[in-house]
Design a protein around this nucleic acid. Structure first.
Lengths: 145, 145
DNA sequence: TCTCATGTAACTTCAAATAGTGCGTGAAGC
DNA sequence: GCTTCACGCACTATTTGAAGTTACATGAGA
């Protein structure tokens, strides 16, 4: 997904789902699904018909990873956690009570860090790596993971 | 799994996998699988034959959730994270570089909190809740989630 | 020696995430 | 207007990892 956004930043004309899908080695529908959240939040635009496709609606410097996370729908960042919000099971209740704040703190920490990173930073880092290792260019263009 | 340990703490005689499985609404083999890690780390013992079953090898106050986490095999605590350790993809490399320490910090925070909670605390909390709401007793005994 | 209980290796569901297909709709070119 | 192109969306298919099950071997006690 970050791939897609950085990829779009390289071009200045609209890019079709087809093209992006080919570059990522996946299906156009998958691209559209993933981008739907970003479109609703106004980070990208999509146009139908001839010459249509996806374009960035904002500068990369204005989009943080936190923004993207929110646009995705704020899935839980933690692998473990309260299985249910208000379980009947008293053991679970005890565990939840003991760890609730710990989970929240850890999540808050991560979100803050995500907010510190803009796509422009990633793009700059990416280009630096590209310059340092030109042999990777083909791999990156083809995305033949 | 915490269920199982607290359950064992209530009894002072060995408890069979069969009994635990029935209480948890699962299969004896599942219990054995889950407990294998704890046995290897010396938190519980298992005895074969007549009068055999599982017994706690340590006091609940000596076992933290962190210990259990380690015994389980230290699965990742974070839902997101570096997909691969050293990816060919330069975009991934850039993302990894930006967020690596964030992930580690969040994980360290969580682990520290896990280390603060002993099973004895959970047991005490559990009993407090049980006393406060006796109606839940049957649910807890039957574990009919 | 018979029963009870764990240990482990297969094998079998089962459910959630992911990927793909088909058709509808709107926009540009001819 | 009609064809082509591209997204949008509902629905179907596939994959994959966890949980459950069965089967059998091993060891301990009555």
């Amino acid at each position: 997904m970050l791939h897609v956004l950085l990829h779009m930043a390289e071009h200045h004309a609209p890019v079709t789902s087809q093209t992006l899908a080919k570059a990522m080695g996946t299906n156009p529908v998958v691209i559209r699904r993933v981008m739907a959240g970003l479109r609703e939040q106004g980070y990208v635009r999509s146009e139908k018909g001839h010459g249509g496709g996806w374009t960035l609606a904002r500068d990369l410097a204005e989009i943080t990873l936190r923004d993207i996370y929110d646009a995705i729908g704020c899935p839980s960042l933690l692998a473990i956690g309260n299985r249910t919000e208000s379980p009947d099971c008293l053991v679970e209740q005890a565990v939840n009570a003991a760890l609730d704040t710990a989970f929240q703190d850890a999540q808050a920490l991560l979100l803050a860090r995500l907010g510190d990173v803009t796509l422009a930073m990633l793009s700059a880092d990416f280009h630096a790596r590209l310059a340092a290792r030109p042999a990777a260019l083909r791999t990156e263009i083809d995305h033949v993971h």
